[in-house]
Design a protein around this nucleic acid. Sequence first.
DNA 1: CCTCTTATCCGCCAGG
DNA 2: AACCTGGCGGATAAGA
Length: 331
Amino acid sequence: MRNNRAMSRPHRVAVLALDHAVGLDLGTPGQVLGIARDAADTFLYEVSTCTPDGGPVRVRGGFRVLPDHDVSLTATADTVIIPGISDGPALTDGRIEPAVAEALGAAHARGARIMSICTGAFALAATGLLDGRRATTHWAYAARFRRLFPAVRLDPDVLFVDEGRLLTSAGVAAGIDLCLHVIRRDHGAGVATRAARRCVVPAWRDGGQAQYVERPMPDDAGWGTAATREWGAARLHEPLTLRDLAGHARMSVRTFTRRFRAETGVSPNRWLLQQRVDHARVLLETTDLGVDQIAGRSGFGTAAALRQQFHRAVGVPPATYRRTFRAPAAT
DNA sequence: CCTCTTATCCGCCAGG
DNA sequence: AACCTGGCGGATAAGA
């Protein structure tokens, strides 16, 4: 799945639009994956759209989409993306038409990657491919999802779930996060960051849906933990303890951890670890520093600690990551 | 690989 | 009553 700069043909992405598609989700892959380029300005993904029978499907908002392909497009795709739907049998009964289920099953069996945005997870789950795996969907549909697909381990508190070749994401905007994640996985943080900049979205949004659930008024101006996150992100090279962070925020440790979790969806230390790994990632890509140097600069006490945490978070060891993504000194 | 130590996370609960 | 705070302690994980 991991393709590199040398690969000649772009990674083929098939967007499978079902009836009652969510319009924004339909466009997300083309707008995020479709604009991703490598250092030589070569487009990395070729995004096409299909519907089950090649005919038009209804889109929320009172219009229809007429694609260039039917579901057979998925037979040659490297990645199939299922956008969200606002109605239809997948959402109401957990069913999809057999021809679509068959096509998705064949694509997966062939080794293709399948991802869903928002309620597209219902269609993906209806194929049975998610059984026994972790997945996510729009938080407002979590209860219904659990009822229809009890065999899927639903985690409604995250922006997306990466199960290797099966990826699911939460509500509409999280589809952008998922696409950026995929670019990062395929081509490294540098390419993903450029794509994000072009989209004018943050390259990495940590935390989960917790920040969007039952929080009508974000506690902005107040004494939240945002300032402390900024402060901490600038001091990754120092050994920051939870007490330090709470102290900077002028809260007790207990209140700080509680507020931090409510605002970001992750615990302080998990957030800190994510920051450190991200920083190490950038250093691996853009510098020739040794692993122990990078460990120091990104706040890991030892190179061993960096290796362990990096491998766990990214999926590959630092050395492999660098070999795959180290950009030639250019630009 | 195991053990010991220390840090973190979070439910619980009393107090404001 | 409805809410937030912060200490306690046990479970868990990270580091030595």
